[in-house]
């Protein structure tokens, strides 16, 4: 098995893990978004609540969710390792740098953006996932279908201005992270082709805009229109 550790330990191997976990997280995001949009179904949260139950109890999804947690941790851990490696590669920094003339801000700020997202994620999980799964102190009501009313908690949370702002910051960071990360994942995998790469780039940008906007629509809508 030494070839595996050897491969994954190399600079390209580390990037491979970043890429694969990143793509998996990208895939998860869109599923998460589609499910969450049931908030807007106008049924007082019934659909949303059953979705929440389904996501936490269906065995296959449960299994995948462990892979998801693992991916997040691996992605963050390798990001940290790479950050250290890259810092070491340039011990003395330049006095003057005009990096904006040769690369995008997002691409240079992946560590910063990733860290913001990580903090946001902890907050987000604490707010909902922790409460729902482990009973973090909030007393859930029971909805018409007999499910715990997560929907209500969501509405409650997004009445706080600071929570909404925090979410918007987190989602903005996510947007920039995806802006670069989406196409970067393909490049790392070596999937670069004159014909398809422009399409991947376009798709990446589209994704980086649409998905975070979709997520942001929830706190914003709830804050302004659902008292």
């Amino acid at each position: 098995m030494s070839w595996i550790t050897d491969t994954l330990g190399s600079s390209i191997g580390k990037k491979l893990l970043m890429s694969l976990t990143g793509l998996f997280l990208i895939l998860f995001l869109v599923i998460h978004l589609i499910g969450n949009l049931s908030i807007f179904s106008g049924d007082g949260g019934l659909a949303f609540n059953s979705y929440a139950v389904f996501m936490t109890s269906f065995p296959l999804i449960k299994a995948v969710s462990y892979l998801l947690y693992f991916s997040i941790l691996l992605h963050a851990f390798y990001a940290f390792m790479l950050w250290i490696l890259n810092r070491k590669a340039r011990p003395v920094r330049y006095a003057v740098e005009h990096a904006n003339q040769n690369s995008s801000w997002a691409s240079r700020s992946m560590t910063l953006l990733g860290s913001l997202i990580f903090i946001f994620l902890i907050m987000h999980l604490k707010d909902f996932w922790w409460q729902f799964k482990f009973g973090g102190g909030y007393e859930f009501e029971i909805d018409a279908n007999g499910n715990r009313d997560l929907y209500k908690l969501v509405i409650l949370q997004f009445q706080y201005t600071y929570v909404v702002i925090a979410y918007l910051i987190g989602l903005t960071a996510l947007a920039f992270h995806l802006w670069h990360g989406f196409q970067s994942a393909f490049q790392t995998l070596g999937l670069n082709h004159d014909r398809y790469t422009p399409a991947i780039r376009f798709l990446g940008i589209l994704y980086a805009v649409v998905v975070p906007l979709g997520f942001a629509s929830m706190p914003v809508y709830i804050y302004f229109f659902m008292k």
Binding site: S10, S11, I12, K14, K15, L82, L85, N86, K88, A89, R90, A99, N102, S103, S104, S107, R108, M110, H180, Q183, S184, Q187, T188
Partner: peptide
């Protein structure tokens, strides 16, 4: 690649710079 890593160069972030 092994030699490149051994020399102490950093990893690629695909910034394109």
């Amino acid at each position: 690649v092994a030699q490149m890593d051994a020399e102490g160069f950093g990893a690629c972030t695909n910034t394109g710079a």
